[in-house]
Simulated assay, not measured.
Amino acid sequence: MLVAERHTRIVSSLRAATVASTEELAHQLEVSAETIRRDLVTLEQQGALTRIRGGAAIGLPSLTGQEPAFVDRTGLAAVAKERIGRAAAALAPPGGTLVVDVGTTALAVARSLPAAFNGTVATCSLLAAVELSHRPDAEVLVSGGRLRPGDLALSNGSTAEFFADFYSDVAFLGSGGVHADAGLTDYHLDEAAVRRTIIRNAAAAFVLADATKLGRIARHRVVALRGLAGLITDEEPPGDIRAAIEDGGGRVIVAEGATR
């Protein structure tokens, strides 16, 4: 089993039970307790869980501190993000107009768009733009803005102005956290403002969030969940999140191959 998949399964187990012992996790995953202890240290550093005596827990709803580094986030829930990316790409209409946001899960959407995609994609992610450059029939538009290292994300007033003049069929949004009451939240103030502009001009805006983001709250509020067309995730979300999405007329899409 790949390390990334093991990490995903650890987080999924904790979301189901809230608390799990090291021995329980070792038995479930058929690895040594020492391997699980190393995994828990890594996942705690990434903000995915909290280690407790003899095991770990997921303490919801709040998430404090800084966003984990990009290199750490690329390894967290990597299998889940690939599934989410494929599920999102399946919503892209042929010849349609898309927005692909910043973040590791949004990057998975860009990677999952078929080579024959012939629509227009606007993005504020240089990583996504490079990925999309391999689609010969796609028109790729890149916003301006201040560059954030790691994610190679662009954001500031000029980024918001770019998206204020761009109307999309579907927008795929990254997330810092998704919470029934707090809504969609993010770590970066400028990027939260850009997302609000993207949402206003999108016929349908879907938030992308693996299970580690569900129930969490990052510093800056983007929008209430009722303002979204839906949530694309890798496992069945808590009931209050599903209700908040569906009460606003949105839908929850659980990626194929994920836990339901």
Score class of each variant (00 low, 15 high):
S143N: 07
L126V: 06
V142N: 05
T159N: 02
G176F: 02
R226E: 11
T159G: 03
N156R: 08
H188V: 09
A209Q: 05
A128G: 15
R242T: 09
S133H: 12
L141S: 11
A193Q: 14
S155K: 11
V170C: 05
R135L: 15
I198S: 01
I232G: 03
S168P: 12
S168Y: 03
T185S: 06
D137C: 14
V223E: 15
T212L: 12
S158Y: 11
G239A: 11
H179G: 04
H134M: 14
R200L: 00
E161K: 12
A224D: 11
H220N: 12
T233R: 11
F206V: 01
G248F: 01
D186V: 09
L189V: 04
Y167C: 03
D165T: 13
L147V: 15
A180V: 04
F163A: 02
D247W: 10
D247C: 08
F206Y: 14
L132C: 15
K213G: 04
L147G: 02
D151A: 14
G230P: 15
R195L: 05
G177P: 00
T212R: 15
A180F: 01
A182F: 02
D169Y: 05
D186N: 15
G176C: 03
A192V: 00
I232L: 07
H220A: 00
L173I: 07
E161R: 11
A193T: 13
D165V: 00
A224K: 15
L214M: 12
R200A: 00
L127F: 14
K213N: 03
A203N: 10
R148E: 09
L184K: 09
R195E: 12
A209E: 07
G183A: 07
V194M: 05
R216H: 09
A243P: 02
A153Q: 11
D190Y: 13
L231Y: 01
E191M: 10
A205H: 00
F163I: 01
R242M: 10
D190E: 14
A182Y: 04
G150N: 01
L225Y: 10
H188S: 00
A182V: 06
N201Q: 07
S133K: 10
R200K: 09
D190I: 11
G227P: 02
D234Y: 04
V178G: 02
D151H: 09
D181S: 09
R195N: 08
A129P: 15
E161S: 06
A224M: 08
